[in-house]
Design a protein around this nucleic acid. Structure first.
Lengths: 170, 170
DNA sequence: ATTTTATGTCAGCCTTGTTGACTTTCCAAG
DNA sequence: CTTGGAAAGTCAACAAGGCTGACATAAAAT
């Protein structure tokens, strides 16, 4: 049985019967799944003086090496003071390198050091393992639907940033 | 083009080619989508002295009226001290009622007052609107895949709790 | 009668978010 | 060349919401 009734609207478009119960299950799925999503990296981070904020910084610096602080700021959606605190400890601890921009010397371009790469790899491997297992168990069509729904759930600005990250899978 | 190659393994099971890039996009989709997921309720909560923690409590009390503190604790995955702080303000403000158990007088059974129901409705409607729009734009097959992947991403214990919440959509 | 369970509470700590104020550096326009 | 403004960094203070540990009370279970 499908969970969704289907109808044709006046314009011929597909309509869905979405009960509040179905929407609630979607909401709760997001809640519980996000917990699982962060659980493995969180466990690793307990062994360091780092938290989720550090993980996010490492992830996006690794993803876009040489990104500026301002760019990272808009991706992470926090204040520069918040990010700076995290960044400072990562730089002090030798996980992140901050290089003064060549063209614009006000800008700082961020790179992971080998030590930073190592921790990022540890964290992201744990997270990818879970994601991989989930993708495998759900199957390719489910994965496609998963990404479609998540993308539609983002704010326009986030979707823009999400899409601007390179995607070797397309 | 499908993002996923397919093969048959030795046992005939479907295999997926999942590149690290595809997994990263999944990880980033979760990150950005969760921001969208919480954005609307967060905006509403700014007008109150409440935060996301209060929203979660209201949600699950509304979902399972009469639930005990212990049960809520295990659903939310926080300490009783954390939950108590939230619960105390909600009770003081007259959004939640705590009734001593009839069979077991040690237990407190939690219910929303009309005032609590009103705020919960406000918050959940905002969240459901976004979820509904995302479900509509992605289509029924995508919604099914979305839930399959999220469910597979949960820890076993969370999945148990997720499934034990009633689902009128099945 | 004793132990265990469910709940509540106090105190203190940490991470990670916030705002506001201020400085330094440096590009670019007048 | 000077000045305005953008980019970045820093300091201080604060809040939400996690955490631990210790302790209290009532009631159920043994």
């Amino acid at each position: 049985m499908s969970q969704h009734g289907r109808l044709r609207g006046p314009g011929g478009e597909a309509l869905l019967f979405l009960t509040d119960e179905q929407l609630k299950k979607g909401i709760e799925a997001m809640f519980f799944a996000y917990r699982g999503f962060t659980a493995d990296p969180d466990r690793i981070l307990e062994n360091y003086a780092y938290g989720r904020a550090h993980h996010r910084a490492l992830h996006f610096i690794h993803r876009s090496p040489g990104t500026t602080v301002n760019n990272l700021l808009s991706i992470l959606g926090v204040t520069k003071q918040s990010l700076n605190r995290v960044l400072r400890t990562l730089i002090e601890d030798g996980l992140v390198e901050s290089r003064v921009g060549r063209r614009d010397k006000r800008e700082r371009h961020l790179h992971l050091t080998p030590k930073g790469v190592a921790l990022e790899k540890d964290l992201s491997e744990a997270q990818r393992n879970r994601m991989r297992a989930a993708f495998r168990s759900a199957g390719p069509e489910a994965v496609s639907g998963f990404r479609q729904v998540l993308e539609a759930m983002m704010d326009a600005e986030m979707r823009r940033q999400y899409n601007s990250l390179k995607d070797a899978g397309s």
